[in-house]
Design a protein around this nucleic acid. Structure first.
Lengths: 341, 341
DNA sequence: AGTGGATATGTAAGCGCTTGCATTTTGAAT
DNA sequence: ATTCAAAATGCAAGCGCTTACATATCCACT
């Protein structure tokens, strides 16, 4: 009686149940094609042996991995967490596994990750945002890999997208801020290079400013990478302007949280001395005090719909239609009227 | 001239470079075993074709995947993010890829994930905490899969572990709180079932309480799952006690943030009316105001060392020694003396 | 009992790669 | 020139699975 030194294989199961490997395979993949008695015998052999199918072998033979890859800019904060969570729940429902990797907001890493995921046999890919080297799109279409963009909706893009209109969302928020009477507006944006979401959000603010008759000089912008400390630093810089802004719009909630902390450290009252807004409505926005006025993004809905659409694309070889989702402004205490008219 | 309908294979490259597939394979895996001229020819064929090795095939043939799997309880908050980040950076350095999945704190999901990762050919596994069904340990050792536990150090465990002494860390913090003069202590713990870290932290508090001559009745405990809202709810419950606690120790920073928010909503001053402490020292602890007194865990060091150790175990078939890391208390404004002596 | 179509199972050919071993080439030393 | 070990390359056998196709078995009707 030798103990198996490594994983039992289909063959071991087949021998034990006294059937062919084909039958064992069918038992596992399409049980109804096997008669009850045989199936029982096979299944009991399976767990007597503790058999687990070898994934690599299966992928290779079936040319199908039931795996979806997703590449997000970062896992360090919660921005993509909730959406990804429901994306993966929905995939799980449909029998797919999600493989996630992060690109640290770097295009070249994203490209490498895409290749890696494909080499690993991903049946489809979820990407964030539209900005990337065109040759990646060529590669994807040449290899016929279904791919979908999330977090940014664009009607005429190379890949179908499920997301929202970043420009319009920020336009609305900025307009709201201006209506409250703010005229000196500060902006803390994420790096716009290769990031259409950041770029479009800034554009939304610009449009709102010029649309409401303010001068470009009423607007001061700092661009920085998405980290709390950078939000704090940018806040310091912005408040050095003369006159200092009375409202600061941040590219996301993380930057806003950093700005808020810095304001407190500088002894400034929010929103009394200065208003601060975020974007995304992640948990953080409600935890800080005062809680952040922000743009609510329907993360869960987005994740779920992206999963459905991507699975549809994979299974029926369709192109995917994309869908625009609505955002809404969430008013919380971090935004108020400017101090003196 | 037909365009390739799917990915080019080793064979395509071999034909184009007019060598055997073996040579191409060697070019890619041990370049020094191939003479320069040939190598050049092969490599240029590789990128003329845009060849990417098929991962499944490679794993199958080599019986080695250069992949490490990690299963963490949750990705929803940042508790494991930083440690995992450095774990993966270190792995990347060493040529390994990290596959992460989360178990949502559910043992049965963790078990499934372990099987999945192994089926996918993971060369080694990182697990969080020691509490789990013994048959999982049997399975792992029978299959000879190197595995390492992090976030909790225990000298005599089935698997080597790299982490800290959860009991001692919390004992120190609780002792410190008691020294400040607090006698009514509230505890918001994570679910202890199947979670040795949560269990040991509570134990540390109990030990500190009884060790300093307080009665068990001075201690009120609420157990709940690790979510912000639950921290808030637990806080409400605890403050209903008579007398209410003057200090509340939370099982982690997330629960503490929830408690803090709730305190503010109830119009209580922290630490004036009640002190609150966390555990982990994630970014959140510094963002909330007042910032949280908490236990600092050397996440990055832990991640890095775990990676080194696990790779060592995988490559040299060693057993792994484990290592205990030191934590330290970080004093921030959320903890103060009780109101009246 | 005999028949035929449906149903269940078996056979075997790959999937794309790595690697032990066999073969050829190389080049230094004779 | 010749020899021969070392270096470079080729050959071919798998790795564990799926699946088209072939074969065997079943059962409802004559």
């Amino acid at each position: 009686m030798e103990k198996p030194r490594s994983a039992p294989t289909l063959d071991d199961v087949a021998k034990m149940a006294d059937v062919s490997t084909a039958t064992v395979s069918r038992c596992l993949n399409s049980p109804d094609r096997v008669v009850e008695a045989t199936r029982k015998r096979v299944l009991s052999a399976v767990d007597a042996l503790g058999y687990t199918p070898n994934f690599a072998a299966r992928v290779m033979a079936a040319k199908r991995s039931f795996t979806i890859g997703a590449i997000i800019p970062t896992m360090e904060n919660a921005i993509f967490a909730r959406g990804l969570q429901s994306f993966q729940e929905e995939l799980h429902q449909r029998g797919y596994t999600l493989l996630v990797s992060s690109s640290a907001y770097k295009p070249e890493i994203e490209e490498e990750q895409i290749r890696t995921l494909i080499a690993r046999g991903a049946d489809g890919l979820l990407l964030i945002g539209h900005d990337r080297d065109p040759k990646i799109y060529d590669f994807l279409s040449q290899r016929k890999i279904p791919a979908l963009v999330a977090w940014s909706y664009l009607p005429d893009s190379k890949l179908p997208s499920i997301g929202f209109d970043n420009r319009a969302a920020m336009f609305d928020l900025a307009s709201h801020v201006i209506e409250l009477g703010h005229t000196q507006i500060g902006v803390i944006s994420g790096l716009v290079d290769g990031n259409d979401r950041a770029r479009l959000r800034v554009q939304g603010i610009r449009d709102a400013v010029s649309g409401s008759g303010l001068e470009a000089s009423n607007l001061t912008l700092v661009e920085t990478s998405y980290e709390i400390e950078n939000g704090a630093k940018a806040f310091r810089d912005l408040m050095n302007a003369d006159p200092p802004p009375t409202a600061i719009l941040c590219g996301n909630d993380v930057l806003a949280a950093g700005a808020l902390r810095q304001a407190q450290e500088m002894g400034l009252d929010v929103p009394g001395d200065v208003s601060i807004t975020g974007f995304d409505d992640i948990e953080l926005a409600r935890i800080v005090s005062p809680a952040l006025t922000t743009v609510h993004v329907p993360h869960r809905e987005m994740g779920r719909k992206a999963a459905l659409q991507l699975v549809e694309m994979v299974e029926n070889q369709t192109t995917g239609t994309g869908e625009q989702l609505a955002t809404r402004i969430v008013n919380r205490p971090s935004l108020g009227k400017p101090a003196s008219g």
